[in-house]
Nucleic acid binder design. Sequence first.
DNA 1: TCTGGGGTCCTAGGACCC
DNA 2: TCTGGGGTCCTAGGACCC
Length: 433
Amino acid sequence: MTKFFALVDCNNFYASCERVFRPDLEGRPVAVLSNNDGCVVARSSEVKALGVAMGVPFFEVRALFQRHGVAVFSSNYELYGDLSARVMAVLARYSPDLEVYSIDEAFLGLDGFERWDLNAHLGELRRTVRRWTGIPVSVGAAPTKTLAKVAAGRAKKTPELGGVLVLDTPAAVAAALALTPVGDVWGIGRRWSKRLEAMGIQTALEFSRQPEARVRKTMGVTGARTLLELRGQPCLGLETQPADRKSCVASRSFAQTVTAFDDVKDAVATFAARAGERLRHGHGSGGAMVAGQVCAFALTDRFAENAPQCHAAATVALETPSNLTVDLTRAALAALRRAYRPGYRYKKAGVMLLDLAPETRAQPTLFAPTVEDRDKAERLQRALDGLNGSARGGGRDLVRLGAAGFGHGGHLRREHRSPRYTTHWSELKRVRA
DNA sequence: TCTGGGGTCCTAGGACCC
DNA sequence: TCTGGGGTCCTAGGACCC
């Protein structure tokens, strides 16, 4: 049985999510901004047609957007996460093997579908996702994951294909590769595509014909893997079980730079609490996790070329791995005290939790508090989570440790956020059919 | 004035040990 | 004047992804 994969890719996902509840925006330009309303992170096709690149700073295109009546949204991850789950639930009906690769992409295993009319099957999948969730998707299918990505990319860029491209013959593969710039290949980023183009390699097809030994030598094993995948030799399998995460970062840029230790401290305490919350909720995988090390960091503004730069960071090991806010905050602040350097204008700070492991019941070390003490601490944490979770009106920071101060971790610009239609009843009003 | 946030993997080089 | 070689572990930095 030969391998076969499909990749389903949501078109302009965040922009499409905003349109689901604003049908009046159909056919009109829509853009979604990053945190802090800093960069453009999603663009409808109309915005792409204006020549706006992914990731450009908002202030550079603000005037252009105004002239063309672009509907601008701050990112609303609660909405996008919920719609993503709905899309994935539909996909699961089309293959027993599903790998949720990111918020807007999934691979399907199609081994054993050889006798099916894949074009018809995937076309129906596409129509069903659209009808049931409102999200338009592109679908590519091929003998390797990298080729499936290429196919989906072609499907998205070629309207005549009707959103689906199946690469099941060497000729079809070669034709798609010839039309794909080498920098668009999954695994070949900005750095490598620049170097390859300088060597005269422009397309994915040209790259696929390079000698393997040479690619392995210059680009390492990952480059060689990409090469073989493009030649139809699968090196990457379907990963249907989400792997346990190894780290967890909570960080933000400040709207204004801060200098005082206490200001950085307030932010770091907030981030420690936020990261701990994620660990207790499973952090993307199965059950709750605990961290063995806590790193706190504070960075100056990398765009302020004339300002003195500083990357302050320190890591502290926990005596006993934990996911409790008290433990993580204490460790994060100890790390910060060690890392902080006065006099710099800090633009961003964060907390990184490392050495993550699944939470297994109490293993107190010789020096750790007694089982009873940890029990008490965990009960307190659950009580805090309960209060914050049930807080109405989006007040998720209702109860916080004193160290987090008041008001920080905020300073976040979000001037264009849409209602959280699907997760907050109070924000669902007058949605047209 | 205004430039995101959250991840993973690979590699090279140093420290250390025998 | 001579001053090995090889294995392992750790870390920092680079590259990639969405």
